[in-house]
Amino acid sequence: MRPRVVYVHGNGNKVRSELLKSQWDRALFGSDMADFSRMAYWAPVRYDTPLPDFRLGPLDGGPAEIEETVASVEFEPPEEFVARTLAEARFEAGGIGPESTPGVGEQKDALVDWLSEMTALADTLAEMEDAGPADRHPLEALPLPATPRKAVFRLLVKHTFKDVHAYFFGGAGKTIRGVVQETLEGLDDAPLAVVGHSLGSIVAYEVLAEQGREVELFTTVGSPLAITEVQDHLAKPPAVPAGVRAWRNASDLRDLVALDHTLRPEYAPPERVTDLLVTNDSHNHHGIAEYLGNPKVREPFQRIFSDVARGQTGCKHDK
């Protein structure tokens, strides 16, 4: 039986399903994978019509072939985002400045300092990747301070990640999970890989945790699953889904959606989880094409799907 890969997209409206799947295929494999891949396309649950072809969602970055579109999209620098979101927090609390809400100024300073440190670490990581492959990086992402992390996460959900709010609190979760479940139907006997981006990583995780189906490789990119405030709302306590043989979690240190970058300490058994610090040079460090195109993300897929990608009729996983 030939392997299959199922994609689960993240926040925001998307281009039509067939084009989105092809974009992910080309980013991950370098070519369209035809019926060897499927897109769990849940955007219609939240949006009446898809984006125009090659129009970027605000969180998606964009593939290299549409650079002119990428360049036209304005992304807010992380430091400016921090300042704006904390200003909104002060306004909603009835304050008019940092002095009126104790600790807000310190929260902003802590976040800006943290973002600067993450940028420096990410630059160092990029230099190491350019120098050649390494089995292990000596870098460890420092956790974002708890108080500002909670403040920013809540504002992210309320004002920016409205699909996350709809998923957890707006009654859309069951329907979105149903799209993923339907996409997985009929693949019970095929060696399976699953990729989840952003909110899609949460949806994929919850479906796999519920089903317990066998998955050779579960890959999450730009995932917020390490954030305590997300874990608090999962249907089951954090753990590697029973059927998942290997879980690879990749994030850029500057990715504000990920915030926390290590799943391994919270999701047992830890030996099945690999946390990867990678560079994502999209404007917001969260773009899906840049994540899927990273060699550390691509390598296990290209190995599993090597025969399929070469256009052969079978592969090493055939029964």
Rank of each mutant, 00 (worst) to 15 (best):
L139V: 13
E127H: 04
W24K: 07
V15A: 08
H285E: 07
F75W: 10
F29T: 01
E99G: 02
K162Y: 10
L20H: 09
E68T: 14
R254S: 01
V164Y: 06
A131P: 00
R84I: 08
R38E: 07
N294M: 05
D135Q: 11
G95W: 06
V308I: 15
P148C: 06
P145H: 10
L115Y: 03
P191H: 06
R46N: 08
M118N: 02
V6R: 11
S251M: 07
V194G: 04
S22M: 13
L217N: 03
D53Q: 01
V195E: 04
T262F: 09
V152I: 15
G186S: 07
V180P: 02
A268P: 10
F81H: 06
L184Q: 07
M118L: 04
A151S: 13
L86F: 11
I96T: 12
D130T: 07
E92I: 08
S31M: 11
R177S: 07
E74C: 04
L155K: 13
A239E: 11
R248D: 01
R55V: 11
E299C: 01
L144F: 11
L208Q: 05
I288N: 08
P138I: 15
T228Q: 10
L225D: 05
G171D: 03
R149D: 08
L234K: 02
F305M: 09
T85D: 09
E214D: 15
M1A: 14
G61S: 04
T124D: 12
A242C: 01
A209L: 09
A146D: 14
D281I: 10
V8C: 12
I227Q: 08
M1C: 09
D163N: 09
K21D: 04
S100D: 14
G170S: 08
D109I: 12
S306P: 00
R90A: 11
P300M: 08
H283P: 00
L187P: 00
D123H: 10
H283Q: 13
G10W: 00
R90K: 03
G293T: 11
R248N: 03
E74H: 12
L144N: 08
G293C: 10
I288E: 06
T147G: 07
K14W: 14
K162R: 15
N249D: 03
L277F: 10
R310E: 15
V244E: 03
L259N: 00
H137N: 02
G103T: 11
K236P: 00
E76P: 00
L276C: 04
P148D: 05
G10T: 10
H261R: 09
Q211N: 11
E185Y: 00
S116Y: 00
Y205C: 11
L28G: 01
P98D: 14
Y47H: 07
T313V: 14
Q23C: 03
A239F: 00
P44E: 02
K108S: 12
S72P: 00
K296H: 08
L234M: 05
A235D: 12
V157I: 14
S17P: 00
T220R: 01
H165W: 07
L111N: 01
L225V: 05
D281Y: 12
H137L: 14
R26V: 15
W247C: 07
A93S: 11
E99K: 11
S198N: 04
V157T: 14
P50M: 09
V297A: 02
K21N: 05
R90Q: 05
K158T: 05
L256H: 01
V6E: 08
Q23E: 15
D163C: 06
G95N: 10
D307T: 03
H283M: 10
L115A: 13
A120G: 01
F305T: 02
N249M: 02
V6Q: 10
E185L: 13
